[in-house]
Design a binder for these strands. Sequence first.
DNA 1: CTGTTAGCGCATTCAG
DNA 2: CTGAATGCGCTAACAG
Lengths: 332, 332
Amino acid sequence: MTIKEIAALAGVSSAAVSRYLNGGYISDEKKEQIKKVIEETGYYPSTQARILRTKRASLVGVVVPKINSESISRITAGIGQVLAARGYQMLLASTDNCPEREVEYLKLFENYPVDGIILIGTMITAEHKKFLKGSKVPVVVIGQYTKHANCIYHDDYGAGKAMGRLAASLNQASGGGHIAYIRVTREDKSAGAAREDGFRAGLKSAGIELSGDYVRLSEFRTESGYNAALSLLEEKPDIDIISCATDTIAAGAIEALHVFEKHAPNSRRVTVTGFGDNQLLKAVTGGIPTIHFGYKTSGIRGAELLLDVIERGEKIPVEIKLGFRLVNGEEE
Amino acid sequence: MTIKEIAALAGVSSAAVSRYLNGGYISDEKKEQIKKVIEETGYYPSTQARILRTKRASLVGVVVPKINSESISRITAGIGQVLAARGYQMLLASTDNCPEREVEYLKLFENYPVDGIILIGTMITAEHKKFLKGSKVPVVVIGQYTKHANCIYHDDYGAGKAMGRLAASLNQASGGGHIAYIRVTREDKSAGAAREDGFRAGLKSAGIELSGDYVRLSEFRTESGYNAALSLLEEKPDIDIISCATDTIAAGAIEALHVFEKHAPNSRRVTVTGFGDNQLLKAVTGGIPTIHFGYKTSGIRGAELLLDVIERGEKIPVEIKLGFRLVNGEEE
DNA sequence: CTGTTAGCGCATTCAG
DNA sequence: CTGAATGCGCTAACAG
């Protein structure tokens, strides 16, 4: 079904049909004829061809590292909210934590009918930079700092520091065990480097040094957190706090704790902390100390930023840093 | 940058460039010239226009009800795996549990450059049926049974029945409290109707009837499960089992239990069960009785089904029902 | 208000 | 092997 066929069936020109579709001038009489034919045939214009002409898709592409994440879903919820209100639709591309596929999908979107791209980033590689510099469509980055695009990120360093301070005070109150930290790759500047550095700084402000053998590396998965925490518990019996770079990892640490306590019933009491304020974790555990970031807000701001560029050609570079809130930090 | 400009710069025809790009006959000499120009300009052909011509996008669209779900991410992981292996990319559209937006995105994909669509459905409305019948591109439905498209679904009824049996035996072992069920909307034939009906059937096979005032309705959210469970606990002190239609809801029920036990310290011991085998929940709780569905498998099968239709024009309608496994059902 | 016309960027005949 | 020409389905001037 093409616009031409509809035009022929209705006995008008294709331009008339186009106008009917897009609300241009057209007589009521022809309007009726066209309407009838379209209803009969179930015709639906090709978005495809329309975009080739108009260069406007009313669509934005969002590249995310993974699908199954509360933080990311909160960000996309914020994005979706703004987009829907302004007549845009949203398409997602998940890369499964693979930076190469990230660039692949960025390119896909660039040469696709999207008006703009939002990248929820894990790490900004050289390839990323290259893309950001040369992109034909506007891009905003959420969750990572970069000077190559408009970006909106969270105060991971500050959050880490706050958590470090909390860990120090919990540690002192409980009377001197050791603090452990489960980190993620430092290639991720936000969740990796910034949180860890902040955490160390927070400890240091209380006179505590985080020694290397109390630090473990984990992937962004519960299972990986479980392994990291278990190795810590087995090798270092004097641990009383395990701080984890994400709540997902913290869940694994809690699991490890359960398992470990079965084998060593009267071992030291250990506190697990996280980052991200995962709701499911909060529900089930009653709430561990964690950091609440304004994920939904960053999604909202990010989408607004993008639409400003798309619709008004806003050229001034913008960097937004969003704060955080320490959760369940007072109780213990 | 268009193919024409590249052609001009390289001193050849646009057709030559096109052939270069797509591996047609071309002399090494011209190949070199074109290669050079493309590298200099960073030219990238418009996927857009290419698809308008070829009608082939090497892309499939997946419509999902929400992003933040382990079951859905397992399905999309399966889909993505197959697609990647066969040279396709995947785009996601999330509808936030809103059936109307579901149809909207289906239409978007239909008129977009995708070769096929996978719908991970919650409910099949009349609008859905209409779409499935008339769709220009092949569609497969995962997670719901429908006769209007190739579909692949899980044995929710059987799973419900197994859970009902388990609940009955737990109940009898503990000596006669009441069983409660937190359901989801029956408009969702799988997670709603089938699981509930199966659950009732399972109970009945042990001679137990599920009475209406021990049933609550919940949304697909932890918070909603919390509210439902709390109202149950407060109104029915004789409950000893709360079975929930999803693990997400079960997390809320566990939270409610914690809260309730604080107020009523020596209340009856209550077991919470779920469906879906959520890994985070398992980690933190040590594992409640739940059902493991082959979500990843259904994603794999679904993608294979779709590609068969796309690439080989497979016409025979297919319905696949996948089994399940009861998890943590033996311990108690 | 309306039809005719000319492309959007590309792949693909068809003659060379 | 190659270039000129055609058209995918649609919208945007342009003259009526």
